[in-house]
Design a protein around this nucleic acid. Sequence first.
RNA 1: GCGGGAGUGGCGCAAACGGUGGACGCGCCGUUCUUAAAAAACGGCUGUUGUGGGUUCGAAUCCCACCUCCCGCACCA
Length: 890
Amino acid sequence: MDEKYFPEKIEEKWQRAWAESGAFEVEPDSDEGARPKFYCLEMLPYPSGFLHMGHVRNYAIGDALSWFKRLQGFNVLHPMGWDSFGQPAEQAAIKRGVMPREWTEANIEKMRGQFRRLGVSFDWRREIAAHTPEYYKWDQWFFLKMLERGLIYRKNSPVNWCPLEETVLSNEQSSGGVCWRCGASVEKRDLEQWFVRTTDYAQALLDDMKEIEQGWPERVLTMQRNWIARSEGAFVDFQIKESDERVRVFTTRLDTIYGATFVCVSTEHPVLEHALLKEEVRRFAERVRASRAAAVGAPGEVELKEGVNTGLFAVNPFSGEQVPVWAANYVLMEYGTGAVMAVPAHDERDFEFAQRYSLPIRRVIERVSHEQEQIAHDPVSRDQSAVMPHAFTDYGILVNSDDWSGRLSEDAKREMAESAKSKGFGESAITYRLRDWGISRQRFWGAPIPIVYCDGCGAVPVPEDQLPVLLPERAEFTGAGRSPLAGVAEFVNTTCPKCGKAARRETDTMDTFVDSSWYFFRYCDPKNVDAPFDKEAARYWTPVDQYIGGVEHAVMHLLYTRFWTKMMRDIGLVGFKEPVKRLMTQGMVVAETFYRDGEDAGSKVYYNPADVDVVRDERGRVSSATLVADGLPVTVGAFEKMSKSTNNGVDPDEMIQAYGADAVRIFSLFAAPVENDLRWQEAGIDGALRFLRRVYSTVHRWHAALSDAARDAPALEELADEVRGLRRMTHRTIRRVTDDLEEMHYNTAIAALMELMNALGDAGLAPEKASASERFVVREALESVVLMLAPFAPHAAEEMWEGLGHAGGILGSGARFPRADEELAKRELLEVPVQVNGKLRSRLSALPEATEDELRASALADEKVRGFIEGHEIVKVIVVPRRLVNIVVR
RNA sequence: GCGGGAGUGGCGCAAACGGUGGACGCGCCGUUCUUAAAAAACGGCUGUUGUGGGUUCGAAUCCCACCUCCCGCACCA
């Protein structure tokens, strides 16, 4: 080994060695149970052409775990691929005329190089890319399978439309009324679309969460639970007066039905097609549609509740009362039945609407407990609209409800549903907020939907043996809101698979979340031409043991992939319900921002941290900053996610060049717990590099002296106190680091290694003077550090391991993660604090096995303690062996 | 508004079960080495653990209230 640490040189050396030996290429063990398997997966990247620091962090986390498991003797699958369909490729085509495939594949090439320079331990033979026909053929195959099973259907319905990207979005992708990718306000459009019946699995998606509760972050499960939003209630039919029609409503508060003073339907509700309706109603429905299409108003902002009286009357089946039917903008056609019974006294929205249109408010629930709010009301009047300040939405006791009066809400809900069922005008029901997954996209760069439209036969699926439906190489990219495939005649024009007559292909492509819903199964068997993957291969590797990625996919990718797995189980491809046992969502990489106010009011011009000098005050706090170019001040902004718009991004390649991949990785794992945001600071990488250099130069200083050190452990008594202490610390560190790695607490694991190195330095040993037994202890410490460093800084660890006399390095020599000797990990003497009335007064030196009595006696005998207890009555003495003594006096 | 999470030195963060508050790193100050600087080595620096109350011999940790911040959802009937 070289005297000095040259990261570039050793990183290249070991990257080549790994590639040549196929160090990370794995196959299932043939003899069952030879080694346990471990599937470590990071979310696959979109090939933008550049790795960013968020990627570096993501893959550093996964790589650390992969190395750890590998060194523990697991058969580790750690694959990589590309989420290579999607909109940016098309943008490049529109802007620069480069074809999506060329652009994408050039980007993949660039990023593969970046991954190699980072030294991530992937099995590259298993690489997959979504845009290749070998891959998307199976997207199409799954489409056909789901179609056969009735899990896919086509319908014309209002869908979420992103005006900027000119394509449809799923509900998940337009959460909060904005596009998940570009943030534009989403509009509504009527389009013919293909949908996946994810709602068929709504209950399974909820129920099966209990299988993964242990391994998934609570907040991800909460987000999914809220997204699916199961709601228990009842359907009730309201007969329309002087008509055969009924309007079915969904309610979770059947107990309030006697307070229903009107019925509200969505503006898209079929009852509005009623011939006798006034022109006014139609105009209102038209206006609501237009305003939804325009997506005006800030996202999330609640629209003013508006409505119009339809002139129809509906009969409350419980009371027999006739109430007016209104059409209102706040009733959603997509949820429940598209109609509600409005109970203004006990629902805030209905209350607001009733007040606006002077509709009566009738109180039917009274509080049951004095802890509940007493809302002002008029005890004699039937209508409370003059006195009630707001709705009472709690459960309570029924009043003004015929025979039901006096019942409790909970009981009434249940019994009224039963009654409705027996009388044939309703039943209890469960609804979900989750909607079916719209997968049609008006895009070129995606998997073609394998459907042919025939004038005679309608929508005909492409037969399985004709897959894949190939994407053409080129198309006209105008950016206009229509699938570019529609303009490619040789693609569109085909013959009907059923009747053979001329027909047209579907020109929409699939949502790219289809690709990512099952990609990690394909890694198990990436070259299969007969099936998406071999069942046996998948049975060996899956489910994924640890999945790592950003939390932004909590209700998109992670919900779809859970759905997909359940679907694959139902078609017999896999044998389990949940694809991922443990999930870790890492924090963002953030960096300081620097800016000046721009020309336009409110605009800002951002400067890259690399171009800014920072001035600190005497406490070390950043006080001001200047731009290097002109020496004038810039404003110091907050830490924000690295991005183009805030110009605070850092190029991983530059960092690797300056500090080495190992230092970059150490820093990104050490600076914060993996689930926290990571503040990128170059001074921090300096620290990481310093640490690596310190380990390296220590190994170098000792490696010659250690080459002939004894392999047999010397008797502990032979060792001087400090040396014995070092040996014990080595084993304590092994234990700590092992535990921390298991929990992915990389920051504290690295801190423990630093501590051990500090202790080694403090022991004051020198290679020239060290005795044989001392050399043993030093070698044990250094070898342990080097092996434990491998998950974080694999190149440096390999180099040092070889330097310590192990030809072939860590993987080449078959080294294993060190094991702690529990006996040796014990401390010889403990410092036990002594408190008097809870205040620290002295410290005892005690043996770990000292008994309660012994500790009590020596505490009471302690010189310093006696000063505090003399002249006082001792009330009691609390002794916690190994931890503390507390003397309570009066 | 609803749901979830978090507040510890100048900063990032450590502190099994309630049991010595500050490991590790950054930063800052100083010393040694050096013509000087960098590098390196060594030494030093910072606390009513967001606020108020409670439980306890003992609270960063448990309970209650409040404040602040972050994230998710938001007319879902």
